Measured scan of single mutants.
Amino acid sequence: MTYKLILNGKTLKGETTTEAVDAATAEKVFKQYANDNGVDGEWTYDDATKTFTVTE
């Protein structure tokens, strides 16, 4: 399945996607991606759209 991440960081905004077997796996990938890019904030997940959002 394809999962999407929306980044609403103070210095980085954008979107990315990943292929993962489940939401938990996608979340690990996205949290590492956000961490690597210096984005740390509040996370939400919408199962209907398979979209994670992180907002600083």
Rank of each mutant, 00 (worst) to 15 (best):
2 T>D: 05
2 T>S: 10
3 Y>S: 00
3 Y>D: 01
3 Y>A: 00
3 Y>Q: 00
3 Y>W: 15
3 Y>C: 01
3 Y>V: 01
3 Y>K: 00
4 K>P: 01
4 K>Q: 05
5 L>P: 01
5 L>S: 00
5 L>W: 02
6 I>T: 05
6 I>F: 06
6 I>V: 11
6 I>Y: 07
7 L>P: 01
7 L>N: 02
7 L>R: 02
7 L>E: 01
8 N>Q: 12
8 N>V: 12
8 N>S: 09
8 N>I: 13
8 N>A: 08
9 G>E: 03
9 G>H: 10
9 G>K: 04
11 T>V: 14
11 T>E: 12
11 T>W: 14
11 T>H: 14
11 T>Y: 15
11 T>P: 04
12 L>T: 14
12 L>P: 03
12 L>N: 15
12 L>R: 04
12 L>V: 11
13 K>M: 11
14 G>C: 06
14 G>W: 12
14 G>S: 14
14 G>H: 14
15 E>R: 07
15 E>D: 07
15 E>M: 05
15 E>V: 08
15 E>F: 10
15 E>P: 03
16 T>N: 09
17 T>N: 09
17 T>I: 12
18 T>Y: 10
18 T>I: 14
18 T>C: 04
19 E>M: 15
20 A>T: 06
20 A>L: 03
20 A>G: 04
20 A>S: 07
21 V>F: 10
22 D>W: 03
22 D>P: 01
22 D>R: 03
23 A>V: 11
23 A>I: 07
23 A>S: 15
23 A>W: 13
23 A>N: 07
23 A>H: 08
24 A>E: 14
24 A>H: 14
24 A>D: 09
24 A>N: 08
25 T>W: 09
25 T>L: 11
25 T>Y: 11
25 T>C: 05
26 A>M: 01
26 A>I: 01
26 A>D: 00
27 E>G: 12
27 E>I: 11
27 E>K: 08
27 E>N: 05
28 K>M: 14
28 K>S: 10
28 K>Y: 09
29 V>E: 14
29 V>K: 08
29 V>I: 11
30 F>C: 02
30 F>A: 01
31 K>R: 08
31 K>E: 04
32 Q>D: 09
32 Q>N: 08
32 Q>S: 06
32 Q>E: 14
33 Y>G: 01
34 A>Y: 02
34 A>I: 11
34 A>K: 01
34 A>N: 02
34 A>G: 04
34 A>L: 15
34 A>R: 01
35 N>D: 12
35 N>P: 02
35 N>G: 11
37 N>R: 15
37 N>Y: 15
38 G>N: 13
38 G>I: 04
38 G>F: 12
38 G>D: 12
39 V>E: 03
39 V>M: 07
39 V>H: 04
39 V>A: 05
40 D>R: 09
40 D>Q: 12
41 G>C: 02
42 E>S: 11
42 E>R: 07
42 E>K: 14
43 W>R: 00
44 T>I: 15
44 T>Y: 07
44 T>D: 06
44 T>G: 15
44 T>A: 09
44 T>L: 11
44 T>K: 08
44 T>R: 11
45 Y>K: 01
45 Y>C: 01
45 Y>F: 08
45 Y>A: 01
46 D>G: 02
46 D>I: 05
47 D>M: 09
47 D>G: 08
47 D>C: 05
47 D>Y: 09
48 A>T: 14
48 A>Y: 10
48 A>K: 10
48 A>E: 09
49 T>N: 11
49 T>A: 06
50 K>E: 03
50 K>M: 08
51 T>C: 04
52 F>D: 00
52 F>H: 02
52 F>K: 00
53 T>G: 03
53 T>M: 09
53 T>C: 05
54 V>H: 02
54 V>R: 01
54 V>E: 01
55 T>Y: 08
55 T>H: 11
55 T>Q: 08
55 T>A: 05
56 E>S: 10
56 E>Q: 07
56 E>A: 07
56 E>V: 06
56 E>F: 10
